[in-house]
Amino acid sequence: MDFVLPFEIVDKCLGSRIWIKAQKQREVVGTLCGFDADLNMVLSDVIEYQYKIDGSIEKTHLDEILLNGGQITFLVPFKNGPDEVLNKQINQSNISNDVNLEIEKEKSNSD
């Protein structure tokens, strides 16, 4: 039977960007440099996102951190964090607008 151990997924992420959701409305995005059995992680080029009660987001840039594994809720491999997801959504809405425009053009041409 084929199965994958959770740590194999983390191991595949070495050297790539990962997006970590931690406890207390925190998110961390960084390049994974190393980790241990407790899932403590060394990350470089880090952006820390802290969601405040008033809806604002505090962004902190850090060169290199050691993140406590006990605080991690889940992680998304090969993702560049909430910014990337937002940009993608914006791009997709642009694409769908373009498609709509083309459909309208074709309609007017056929008329």
């Binding site: 050297g15 190393g34 241990d36 605080q71």
Partner: peptide, 24 residues
Amino acid sequence: MTSKSPSDFLKNIIGKPVIVKLTS
């Protein structure tokens, strides 16, 4: 990609100025 384990990281920063952020 050479991995840098948490213990390697710690060896490098002992005795140096650091910032420790708590969950609070």
